[in-house]
């Protein structure tokens, strides 16, 4: 084959041009409700990076070494969500037990994450695009960072908007969606920046 997909290209693409939130609309629910505050957004964003970077390779292992050998690919939806839920639960318990400050800043966001569609989305994309283990890890990490950047940027903008005059019907989700639209356009502009070949 004449040149293949480089893992590094996927890493950068998943942060910028193919930002999981801005091009695939994944993780919108928590994005809209949490992005009001910069501090909470940062906490949730870091938690998302962590969970995505770990569950994506984890699901890769489960898929390649458990589901495929037994011909159970069609059960992947259930299995992935169980893996994610169990992993999040375990991490929460571990953090709570060993580090009180970390739990206060990060742990409280973990339950919110199980219902974040972006996490499951990344695992499903990883399967359909037939990534290798290493690429899956970079893809998970990159998507997490991309989500993090999107939410803190949005939180920063929304804090500035607090004093702005907005038409009453647009307040809250309306204006957030419009800003997200502009951000999506801006992020598309990154496509010329990374030379792949």
């Amino acid at each position: 084959m004449n040149g293949s997909i480089t893992p590094l290209a996927i890493f950068f693409a998943s942060i910028f041009t193919g930002n999981i939130l801005l091009t695939n609309y994944l993780g919108m629910c928590s994005f809209l409700s949490v992005s009001k505050e910069l501090k909470t957004s940062t906490g949730l964003g870091v938690a998302v990076i962590f969970v995505m970077a770990t569950t994506t390779p984890l699901n890769w292992l489960v898929y390649q070494h458990l589901l495929i050998p037994f011909g159970l690919e069609y059960l992947r939806f259930i299995v992935f969500i169980i893996v994610i839920a169990a992993f999040v639960q375990l991490t929460e318990m571990t953090i709570e037990r060993y580090s009180e400050p970390l739990y206060q800043s990060l742990g409280i966001f973990l339950p919110l994450i199980t219902v974040n569609c972006a996490i499951l989305g990344v695992s499903l994309f990883m399967v359909i695009r037939e990534y290798s283990f290493f690429t899956s890890f970079l893809f998970g990490l990159g998507s997490g960072i991309g989500w993090f950047i999107a939410i803190i940027a949005m939180a920063g903008i929304r804090q500035k908007l607090r004093t702005a005059k907005i038409p009453p019907g647009l307040e809250g989700p309306g204006i957030t969606l419009i800003i997200a639209g502009f951000m999506a356009m801006a992020f598309m502009g990154f496509s010329g920046m990374i030379a792949l070949s």
Binding site: M1, G3, S4, I5, G18, F125, I128, R129, E130, Y131
Partner: peptide
């Protein structure tokens, strides 16, 4: 034929 795309083959 197959070749690389942005996200996958």
């Amino acid at each position: 034929m197959q070749g690389p795309g942005l996200w996958g083959t």
